[in-house]
């Protein structure tokens, strides 16, 4: 949805349809993005028109940060695995305990 919004202005139905989302789900999704100050929604007649509010630079910074958070979680799991591997190696070196 974020990438679609980067292409221009859409109302909620236009946003929801190609993503196969229900209207309420799309509305909820947009609300979160609004709260994050990434999306601006304006009411035009009965339509809610949405557009990307963030500058491209800020958007990339935010994407990069969430990408980092995901990989940091993985690497913390890798840290834990490496600790186990190190202690197993020490155990093997000293023979079976």
């Amino acid at each position: 949805m974020i990438r679609r919004l980067a292409e221009g202005e859409w109302n909620l139905s236009e946003l929801a349809a190609p993503l196969r989302m229900s209207f309420p789900a799309a509305s909820k999704h947009v609300r979160v993005l609004e709260r994050a100050k990434l999306v601006r929604r304006r009411v035009s007649g009965r339509e809610h028109v949405c557009r990307l509010k963030a500058t491209p630079l800020r958007a990339v910074a935010l994407w990069t940060e969430q990408f980092r958070a995901l990989w940091e979680k993985r690497f913390q799991a890798l840290d834990a695995l490496l600790e186990v591997m190190k202690s197993e190696e020490r155990g093997e070196g000293a023979g079976e305990v």
Partner: peptide
């Protein structure tokens, strides 16, 4: 490239928003 960067975020939004809120 941007699709790869945003994919986790879209999933975070869909999964209940906690992850995105924490990042913000």
């Amino acid at each position: 490239r941007d699709a790869a960067l945003t994919s986790g975020m879209e999933r975070g939004v869909a999964a209940g928003y906690d992850a995105l809120d924490a990042i913000l």
